[in-house]
Amino acid sequence: MNQMQNSVTGPPPALRLGSSALNSRREDNRLSAIARGENIPPEIHPELAHETPVLEIDHFNLWYGDAQALFDISMIVPKGKVTALVGPSGCGKSTLLRSVNRLNDLIDGVRVKGSMRLAGREIYDRSVDVIELRKRMGMVFQKSNPFPMSVYENVIYPLRIDGERNRRVLDEVCERSLRGAALWDEVKDRLHESALGLSGGQQQRLCIARAIAAEPEVLLMDEPCSALDPIATNKIEDLMDQLSGTYTILIVTHNMQQAARTSDYTAFMYLGRLIEYGPTETIFQKPRLIETYDYVTGRFG
C-alpha cells in the first residue's frame, strides 16, 4: 500500500531505490495490484510533452474475444524518434504494435475501444480504408518473412502493389532501400536470385528494406532481432540508428540493451497496461517507478 501511495502522490526520490526498498514487501507492489485488476495510471515523463506526436493513442482497449489484452493505453509516439516498447512476455507490446496498422483486424474476435490517430487522423473508424492506412506504415516482423520471390521483387513489393511500372523508379527505390537497410553491398550482384537464399540476418534486413521502400510515416518493428545472431543484430541496430531522424520507429524488444542502445524513448508495459514511459536514458538509469527499475535491470520478467 505504501508503494502505491507513493506512486499516486508523486515520483519517488531516487534515494529510495536502495536495495532495502527493493526487497521490502515485494508482493504488495504496483505489479501485483495490476495483476489483481486494479486500475493504475501510468507514469508519463514530462519530456514527451515537448515532442511532436505522429501517433496518438488515447484510452485504447483491446479484447481477444472475452480476454482483454490492452487496458486503457494512452501515449504518443514522437515524430522522427525511435520509441521502444519493453515488458515481459504477454504484456501486449506486440498487440499494441499490430493495432497501429490494424493487422489485428485479421484475427477472429478482436474488439477495440478507444482511439488511435495517425498524424491527426483516426485509425479506428469505419470510414477508414485499412489498405490506405497500411500503405502509410511499414512493418518488420519478429520472424523474417521475405516472399518467395527475388530480392529485387521483395524490395519493390509495396510499389508493385501500387501499380508502379516505371523501371527506373523501381530500380532507384530498390537500390535506395537496400542501401538504407545496409544490404546493398551484400546483394547487389544477386538481386534477381531468390530472397530465400539469403542468410537470416540478410533476410531480416531485406524485410526492413521492403518496409522502408514505400517511405512510410511510421516504421513498426516487432522484435526484429530476436531470431538473429549478435553480428546481424548489431547491423540492424546500426541501421536503426541511421534511420532515426528520417523515420519514426516504434520497436518492440525483449532485449534491454537493445532498447537502451537504439531508442530515444522507452515505454514499459505490464499485463496490457502502460506502466512508465519516458526518455530512454531516464527509464534505464533512474526510472520513477521501482518496478521499471526492477525490469530494466533484469530482476524480473
Binding site: L106, R134, P158, I161, D162
Partner: peptide
C-alpha cells in the same frame, strides 16, 4: 507471416492472394 507481411505492406487481400499466396 507471409500474409501479414503483404497486408502490412499495404496490399489488398486480392493482391496478397494473387501475388503471394497463390504463387506460394
Amino acid at each position: 507471416h507471409l500474409r501479414s507481411a503483404s497486408l502490412g505492406a499495404g496490399a489488398t487481400p486480392w493482391q496478397t492472394a494473387a501475388r503471394i499466396i497463390i504463387p506460394t
